[in-house]
């Protein structure tokens, strides 16, 4: 066995196994963020004030806000760049494509075979999402004597447009499909495999995907219906 420990340490982060593990850890952490984000957003349904106060609390704690934002940017960029690198490498691993390629129906799923595409939809969504909300129209409101941003109004105005709500829902469904494969896949990449728990984990991944997919889509629908009624 020729490889010395020294030559290995250099190639460690470039090995196929570790590249996948980097995808896994960043992906799982982003999954955690998604859940927190959804929980916060659901305050929209509770009351406009609750949502605005929550948003205000988040942006008021500057050190926490900047740390969290920096962390998210790093996670997202690492996940994205690694995905791009892996996709390019995987394409070059088969320079000549098959004349006919047919799935066995016993392995790949719709979700697993569309990861780069759903990932791309999420990327585009993320840019438009920050643009319409975080950097969207700023309204102000005063709750309990404190002046703060009326993010609720910005959000509801966005969802009131059929195209806005539809694009949001579409992207969230793509996101759900993406995580339905990614969640389980992350554990496999780290080598977690168990005859009893792995099937459970796959189900948990689907349940998680349905939860975030349905949760965010419900918000868009709620906003749209509110808009129509207003």
């Amino acid at each position: 066995m020729s490889s010395s420990t020294q030559s290995f340490s250099r190639s460690y982060f470039l090995s196929s196994v570790v590249k996948k593990q980097i995808m896994a850890v960043t992906g799982l952490l982003l999954c955690g963020f998604l859940l927190g984000h959804l929980a916060g957003n659901l305050l929209i349904i509770i009351s406009p004030d609750a949502f605005n106060q929550y948003g205000h609390a988040l942006v008021s704690n500057k050190p926490l806000l900047y740390t969290a934002e920096a962390g998210l940017i790093v996670l997202f960029l690492v996940h994205l760049c690694m995905a791009a690198k892996l996709t390019v490498e995987n394409n070059t691993a088969r320079p000549q494509k098959y004349y006919i390629k047919q799935k066995t129906g016993r392995g790949a799923t719709f979700a697993s075979s569309t990861m780069p595409y759903t990932g791309l939809i999420i990327l585009i969504f993320l840019i438009t999402h920050l643009n319409s909300f975080k950097y969207g129209t700023i309204y102000m409101t005063t709750i309990d004597g404190v002046e703060m941003r009326d993010l609720y109004r910005t959000v509801m105005e966005f969802f009131a447009q059929p195209l806005g709500a539809a694009w949001y829902a579409f992207a969230m469904i793509a996101m759900a499909i993406h995580v339905s494969h990614g969640f389980w896949s992350a554990f496999q990449s780290f080598g977690f495999s168990h005859s009893k728990y792995t099937p459970l984990l796959r189900k948990a991944g689907i349940a998680y995907a349905i939860l975030v997919g349905a949760g965010f889509t419900a918000l868009a629908l709620y906003g749209y219906i509110q808009g129509v009624q207003a």
């Binding site: 996948k20 995987n90 691993a93 129906g105 896949s185």
Partner: peptide, 26 residues
């Protein structure tokens, strides 16, 4: 050492990276 050496060689030979689709198993 075997795991390190064999994976290193596999990568060097230009095989792609697994995306956990299980078409291989199938």
């Amino acid at each position: 050492q075997r795991a390190l050496s064999m994976v290193e060689k596999m990568d060097e030979l230009g095989f792609g990276n697994c995306t956990n689709e299980a078409e291989c198993e199938a």
